[in-house]
Amino acid sequence: MKTEQVGDALLETWTVDEVAAAFNRNEIILIDVRTPQEFMFEHIEGALLMPMAFFNPDKLPGQSEKRIVFHCGSGVRSERVARRAIDAGLARIAHMEGGFGAWKGAKKPYIGTNMATGAPHLVS
């Protein structure tokens, strides 16, 4: 995990493996900031959707029990959202390096769309 001090806050950049391990242990809330269309086509099972276009840090869940980790397609949007969360007063926030593309590249499981039927299915 990489960390960056941003004023009084800490921005963490987690690797795919760190996110996957913490998510499997139910230690984090994984929030996808891609568009609803991107999410519907393929997403990490159990991730919540809060598109960057509608991001409101005041509506984020608390982090008393689980850390919030954002992700997007490549890591660019999730870092922007994480910085917006810090600007809104969150003292510690994280995002996933490389985004969903890195997740798929690491062969982590996700929900995809069967192109023949249009139905969602587990890709592992």
Rank of each mutant, 00 (worst) to 15 (best):
E12T: 12
T13K: 13
T13S: 13
W14L: 13
T15M: 03
V16K: 00
V16M: 05
E18K: 08
E18I: 00
V19K: 04
A20G: 02
A20I: 04
A21F: 02
F23W: 06
N24R: 13
R25P: 08
R25C: 00
E27W: 01
I28H: 09
I29L: 13
I29T: 15
I29Q: 14
I31G: 03
I31E: 06
D32C: 04
P36D: 06
P36C: 08
Q37C: 09
Q37F: 12
E38F: 11
E38K: 11
F39T: 07
F39G: 09
F39Y: 15
M40G: 15
H43L: 05
H43I: 00
I44Y: 03
E45P: 01
G46S: 01
A47H: 05
L49Q: 04
L49R: 06
L49A: 05
M50G: 06
M50P: 08
P51L: 03
M52Y: 11
M52Q: 15
M52K: 14
F54I: 12
F55C: 09
F55D: 11
F55G: 10
N56E: 15
P57V: 09
P57L: 10
P57M: 09
D58M: 14
K59D: 14
L60M: 03
P61F: 05
P61W: 05
G62L: 12
G62Y: 10
Q63I: 11
Q63A: 12
Q63V: 12
S64Q: 14
K66D: 07
I68E: 04
I68Y: 02
V69I: 10
F70R: 00
H71G: 07
H71W: 06
H71K: 06
G73E: 00
V76S: 13
R77W: 08
S78K: 02
S78Q: 03
S78T: 02
E79L: 08
E79R: 15
R80L: 13
R80W: 09
R80F: 08
V81M: 05
A82K: 00
R83D: 01
R83C: 04
R84I: 11
A85S: 13
I86D: 04
I86H: 11
D87Q: 15
D87S: 15
A88W: 08
L90G: 07
R92C: 11
I93W: 07
A94G: 13
A94I: 00
A94M: 02
M96A: 06
G98Y: 01
G98V: 02
G99Y: 01
F100H: 04
F100R: 05
G101T: 11
G101N: 11
A102Q: 06
K104Q: 12
G105A: 02
K108G: 08
K108M: 14
P109H: 00
P109D: 10
Y110M: 02
Y110G: 08
I111E: 03
G112S: 14
T113S: 04
N114Y: 01
N114K: 07
M115N: 10
M115V: 14
M115T: 14
A116T: 10
A116S: 12
A116W: 06
T117L: 10
G118E: 02
